[in-house]
Design a binder for these strands. Sequence first.
DNA 1: GTTGAAAAAGATTCAAA
DNA 2: TTTGAATCTTTTTCAAC
Lengths: 161, 161
Amino acid sequence: MDHFDYIDQQILLQIRKDARKPFSQIAEELKISNSLVHQRIKKLRQRGVIEQAEFVVNEKKIGFRTKSYVGIRLREARYAEQVVQGLNEIPEILECNYVSGNYAIFILIFAYDNQHLREILYEQVHQIDGVAGTDSFICFDTNFKRPVSLDTMLKKEKYDR
Amino acid sequence: MDHFDYIDQQILLQIRKDARKPFSQIAEELKISNSLVHQRIKKLRQRGVIEQAEFVVNEKKIGFRTKSYVGIRLREARYAEQVVQGLNEIPEILECNYVSGNYAIFILIFAYDNQHLREILYEQVHQIDGVAGTDSFICFDTNFKRPVSLDTMLKKEKYDR
DNA sequence: GTTGAAAAAGATTCAAA
DNA sequence: TTTGAATCTTTTTCAAC
């Protein structure tokens, strides 16, 4: 991993919060030329530090009111890959991870309501060959949700290699 | 919740994947005027369906290699609020939810490495008054991660109210 | 690496259909 | 509600420092 300077960090802080913020405005705030902002962003893209720009869609506004994390136990460990394939077919599952601990797989589901969540689990997830059982952690409320801190970029000697 | 037509859905599909895609290009593809694209996006914003545009930052590229979900048990249920306040002070905790099931609170942590995760848990999370214990589900791999499906927008009679 | 100016592309407004 | 044309803003390029 290569280095980031103050300008890179400041640009990232801005565009991460607002991907459509004019480069010219960022330039003005940082007291640099807009062509420099342009160049730096291009490089950050090339390095893979930033990926696409995305509009955040409010899930509730399009009908998804039930959010739930679900831990999945497998009949045998070797079923893992085919279970993931099965889970991938269910559009309401937004994230799927291999994890340590009591579960082999950990997923995130957004459903219309609790009834819909139940249907997804019983009629779809539990029908996948290899799934032994599931435990649901239904989210009553999300207290906070935020992106990774960027401080690490400027003082990361300790953990870098 | 009010209604979405085909144009709204198509615009959303586009800008969700690429928040900087030129409106004029979207207009061309949908065979409508760019001022209509402009108007529709403005309305989607006003309705709260779309929020900010964000650049996606690759966590690994800025040093965060360990992702973990962590379930938190409380000494007593009434500690919940103050524990959330304490968790909010730890920048490596990116998400915090009240959940059903074995845990009271469920969080997402991004740390530099496993050693760093251990430090966050033992030296910070476990020191918060009210925390009885934690279980970690370290993510070995994220098989997939995607946004909510938009199909629901056009055929959501069943679950709407 | 950085800048400023020119050229190209895009966003925004608005009168009219 | 939608469009097309005019205007304004932003992005992109590039020669020079």
